[in-house]
Design a protein around this nucleic acid. Structure first.
Lengths: 215, 215
DNA sequence: AAGTGTGAAGTCTTTCACAGCT
DNA sequence: AGCTGTGAAAGACTTCACACTT
């Protein structure tokens, strides 16, 4: 039950279980069953159990899981004990929104630097006593502040060079909001978030189920 | 090749093909092969062909696809001929960023209204000659401006009631940025974007490949 | 020669179903 | 009686491989 390959969908769901367990813990429930988690998320209980089983045995048969302990185990699995220091490159509206998004620091992702190339933006103050710095000093800042994750919110044209700069500076992972596929070494992990793609998939689902032929 | 079930991953990829074809067309290439699209996206050519085959035959054997025509066909499949009028509920930083995000209008999603409950925000002007209106008038505004898609950028606690209001007003789909699963009638489609979940999955991938046991 | 369209094979993921613990 | 953990079955998705067209 150890040395197996973890399905990618399992990873995404674990990140969702974390959120769900936080809520359950907050609501005061000390123990929880796979069925309760599953119902909350609209999936099957066996799915929850199978996902967890890739990493160990966390529950007690006949009883369920300790909410607290399971949350800790999931934190561990997700690598959330580690300190994640994050920088954001590209301080347009989206970059700015992320810089002050409370959900990130609440989840243990600390924004340590903001970069932009526009000279007018350099130095303008941001709510969290951060300031915007020029991309030219990215490498030294990343090293100095032990930044291990980068966020790309620059325009599509600049995304690859930004990614190259982040890799060169030594980040281990990149969250990419720019609508292009990045070319990266295997050692650097990437997570893509393309907002327009989500809108288009939604448009498709609506069209399929209300216009067009029978599914 | 018609009445089949379309795999969900196919839908997401079609939305990406669209983006890719726009670039190829812009670069001046009048025709394109499945391999070229696939290489651009880091997938297999047979995947591209199979995805398209669910909807018809768009290419010419031995030749490839007309970039222009394929882009049009994909637009059609994705329901992008339809006019999508969008409202955003919750004008925090993220809502604000989306309100002025050029990627949406470029893809045919027109922001027609912005709502918030904070009285201090009502009326403040936004770059695109829009203004923020109170949620109390959501239903009438949605009907009046033929809004058919809603975006939820309110805090998690308020997300379900916002969704209920949007459904009651008659939208056909919702893009939900709040970190909760919404309960919706089957007739209303939803697309979830949970930014923290993406960060956590990234943290997992990094931890798996650099710390921990062999994959 | 080059490239599509597609059944069939292969792989990955989910769900079932039940042994085993409390 | 209730709920976990997990092999095995079912189902979903991807890739192969090749007939077919230009």
């Amino acid at each position: 039950m150890d040395n197996q390959k973890i399905p990618k969908p399992t990873i995404k769901r674990l990140a969702v279980y974390y959120r769900c367990l936080e809520n359950i813990l907050f609501s005061g429930k000390a123990s929880v069953s796979s069925k309760e988690i599953a119902d909350e998320l609209g999936i099957k209980a066996s799915q929850v159990r199978k996902d967890l089983s890739y990493f160990g045995e966390f529950g007690r048969r006949g009883v369920g899981y300790s909410t607290q302990q399971l949350l800790e185990s999931v934190s561990d699995i997700l690598g959330m004990r580690k300190i994640w220091n994050v920088c954001i490159v590209g301080m347009g509206n989206l970059g700015m929104a992320l810089a002050v998004y409370p959900g990130l620091s609440k989840s243990g992702f600390f924004i340590k630097a903001l970069f932009d190339n526009n000279p007018n933006k350099i130095g303008i103050p941001i709510p969290n006593d951060l300031s915007i710095e020029p991309i030219s000093i990215l490498k030294s800042v990343v090293k100095e502040r032990a930044i291990n994750m980068g966020v790309i919110t620059v325009p599509a044209e600049a995304a690859q060079e930004t990614a190259d700069a982040l890799v060169d500076a030594g980040v281990q992972g990149i969250v990419n909001f720019a609508p292009v596929r990045l070319n990266l070494p295997d050692s650097v992990k990437v997570e893509e978030i393309d907002i327009s793609v989500s809108f288009r998939s939604l448009a498709f689902s609506i069209s399929l189920h209300s216009g067009r032929r029978r599914e």
